[in-house]
Nucleic acid binder design. Structure first.
Length: 131
RNA sequence: CGAGCUGGCCGGACAGUCGCUGCGCAAGCGGAGGAAAGUCCGGGCUCCACAGGGCAGAGUGCCAGGUAACGCCUGGGCGGCGUGAGCCGACGGAAAGUGCAACAGAGAGCAGACCGCCGAUGGCCCUUCGGGCACAGGCAAGGGUGAAAGGGUGCGGUAAGAGCGCACCGCGCGUCCGGCAACGGUUCGCGGCACGGUAAACCCCACUCGGAGCAAGACCAAAUAGGGGAGCGAUGGCGUGGCCCGCGCUGCUCCCGGGUAGGUUGCUUGAGGUGCGUGGUGACGCGCAUCCCAGAUGAAUGGCUGUCCACGACAGAACCCGGCUUACAGGCCGGCUCGCACU
């Protein structure tokens, strides 16, 4: 573990993901909410010292598996590139129907804008006590 | 060259970089589809049920073969469409039984007489002994109705007609020949000739079928609550009761079983791919060699950049296979048919 992976500034291992139902429940229970065109972002501070990402892409919103996979990939990719600027928060991303019809470029731009908003929102009003 | 039929195949390419995932100590290697889809069939694999047989129910439905199996595939037969290559077909039984058929039409199932034809025979009228009338009655050829009207053509026959008789064609039954068979042929004989249609109407016949599904199932197993057993201490305490017996509850230690969260497994080597040979018209079988080709589980197989071109469709594995069906930008290869032109 120590040898190769440590250098990856943009790595995205399992420690950066939400894995258990309980962790999702915790975020849903009390979250800050930001909306984009393609997705809705829920955030709640954690105590791990780094942000984590969880995806909740429902079949109801995006009927085709291809669209769901595409959205997940874009969300992960943008999170991967910006995650070092985020404080220690658990994020859950909910899909919106428009994501199915947006082009790759549109999706990418929308998501990047959303993460930027998240960085600003978390920086100013609530300077997290712990970290 | 132009129209068309048909079998098979491909499903952007390459490079760099940042990531994800499986295996591996590492270096590294592998990482969505022809439909991964719909979940419509058939199997494998699991667990449950099960002596045998029958009934009910469901499915299949020309024949033969292939297959683990099929509702699939191949070959053949029959029917229909097309000049043709070819394509399409729930394609068993209506001389077991029951039922159904709107409208039209005279009549629709062991049928019928509206128009029509005839009127020999009987009747009536005239009587020049020829005939006339269409009353009884006869007919089913022609017209008309209908999806369908109880073989066709010709000759004979007759008052007019009619399988009424005959010839040929058609049909049915038996026989014979070819074929494993479906079926075909038509040698011979018989029958004057219906046994109309409908079985995705009931039904009959033949064959097939137990149920549930990987969230199947197996294993490990916190916390909390609770169950069973043994031992220890006390011979106690609390409740019931006036009291004794009895009954119930109660302490500590250890063991056992069930089992939730969570985890592990099932989970990818298979009715497998490729090549060669071989049997078969073919589906496919057999033999040898060779290869290992996704295995995730909040769920990987992607983002960005560059170059090129015909500027990229439908679409994303979730236990695994065999089919079917549906979606699909564009392109490649083979075979064949028809038309035109030319040698």
């Amino acid at each position: 573990m120590a040898s190769g992976r440590a250098t990856g500034d943009y790595a995205f291992g399992s420690e950066l993901r939400l894995c258990e139902a309980a962790e999702y429940e915790r975020v849903f229970a009390d979250a800050r909410r930001l909306g984009g065109r393609s997705v809705t972002l829920l955030m709640r501070a954690n105590e791990l010292g780094h942000p984590r990402l969880g995806l909740a892409i429902s079949r109801k919103r995006l009927r085709r598996a291809v669209d769901r996979n595409r959205l997940k990939r874009h969300v992960r990719e943008t999170f991967r590139h910006l995650r070092h600027r985020l404080p220690a928060v658990d994020c859950v991303v909910l899909a919106r129907q428009d994501a199915a019809t947006m082009s790759a470029a549109e999706l990418h731009a929308d998501l990047e804008r959303l993460w930027q908003k998240a960085v600003h929102a978390l920086a100013s009003p609530h300077p997290d006590s712990r970290t």
